[in-house]
């Protein structure tokens, strides 16, 4: 999206007739000077860390720094892929990310469609305003709320016992099979309303004439949803999926870090937590390994974005670039 835009802008600039002349330089010297400051800032805070990737090919020691540490080739990567724990965190990250992507997209669309069917304007407004409130709460607060709701005296256990589904309170956070569903559900609680905003905007902009002609053809409410609403918001769905597919591996840090614990760490730990462990975990600090794991994550994310984009191109849908 953004890349193709910048090339089209370039053509526009030529059409604008702005040439690289001394006069033009002088005219906009202040813009160029400020832009230079931004380039320096960008190089320091965004591009220098990329240069830090070199650590992944070294045996980085704090004392000697990047310039003085010994190069070890791909040894760190070899270690990573022979580390059972690393393979485990890849699985966890990927599965939780994919589950989150699927469920959050479906729920947001369903919620947007149902909300759109509400005829009472005030009711609609109130429900929507409440629905995206949790988006603005921090993960710390959200995890605290979830933790209390699922604790042994919390509402969920209270209801489950009351209706006789279980005899005694269930320890959700000590259960391995429950961790992924909890992550997905917590994510849904926090983000469904927020994610629905864009779909709702897309639904509102559908031409009412389409619904009218569908009614004339005898389409019922559900047929209209299926044959008019969904196809009309398909471009929005596709572009959001594309934007989020690169984030599948990013979708796992704060929530898992806060809700995870020793008993269930084989299913809760993600790549980011694995990296963090090498970064700050006292005795076992290994910056080179952590960097290598980070590189792996970034590269996979890039591959996912490009792959998603290629698929979208083939099916004739919207694409990012």
């Amino acid at each position: 999206m953004s890349l193709s835009e910048s090339t089209s802008r370039r053509r526009k600039k030529r059409a604008n007739g702005v040439e690289f002349t001394a006069k033009e330089f002088k005219r906009q010297w202040i813009l160029i000077a400020i832009a230079a400051v931004y380039v320096i800032y960008g190089i320091i805070f965004y591009y220098l860390p990329l240069a830090g990737w070199i650590m992944a090919f070294q045996n980085y020691k704090y004392k000697t720094g990047i310039t003085g540490s010994k190069f070890v080739g791909l040894a760190k990567f070899q270690f990573l892929f022979s580390d059972a724990k690393f393979l485990q965190v890849i699985r966890n990250t990927f599965c939780m990310g994919a589950l989150n992507l699927i469920f959050s997209t479906v729920m947001a669309i369903v919620f947007a469609i149902l909300l759109n069917e509400i005829k009472n304007i005030w009711g609609k407004k109130i429900v929507q305003t409440i629905s995206y409130l949790p988006h603005f709460l921090s993960w710390i607060v959200v995890c605290g709320l979830v933790h209390d709701a699922l604790s042994s005296t919390g509402i969920i256990n209270e209801l489950l016992v009351k209706f006789g589904i279980i005899d005694s309170p269930f320890q959700f956070f000590a259960s391995k099979p429950w961790f992924w569903p909890l992550v997905v559900l917590t994510n849904l609680w926090k983000e469904t309303g927020w994610n629905a905003i864009i779909y709702l905007a897309a639904i509102t902009s559908i031409d009412p004439a389409l619904y009218e002609s569908a009614s004339i053809d005898g389409a019922g409410r559900f047929q209209k949803m299926w044959y008019v609403t969904l196809p009309s918001i398909r471009p929005t769905i596709m572009i959001l999926l594309l934007m989020n597919i690169g984030n599948v591996l990013n979708a796992g840090f704060e929530l898992q870090y806060i809700l995870g614990n020793g008993v269930i760490q084989s299913v809760s730990r993600t790549i980011d937590i694995y990296v963090l462990d090498w970064a700050i975990n006292g005795r076992n600090m290994d910056f080179s390994l952590g960097t290598a794991a980070g590189i792996f994550k970034t590269l996979v994310a890039l591959i996912l974005i490009v792959a998603g984009n290629t698929i979208a191109k083939k099916t004739g849908d919207e694409r990012l670039f």
């Binding site: 320091i44 805070f45 965004y46 220098l48 860390p49 990329l50 240069a51 830090g52 990737w53 650590m55 990047i66 690169g246 980011d272 990296v275 963090l276 090498w278 970064a279 910056f287 952590g290 960097t291 980070g294 590189i295 994550k297 970034t298 890039l302 974005i305």
Partner: peptide, 12 residues
Amino acid sequence: YANGGLIPTMVL
């Protein structure tokens, strides 16, 4: 799209 990641940022 491209960022150095946690550890290079810390070192920086």
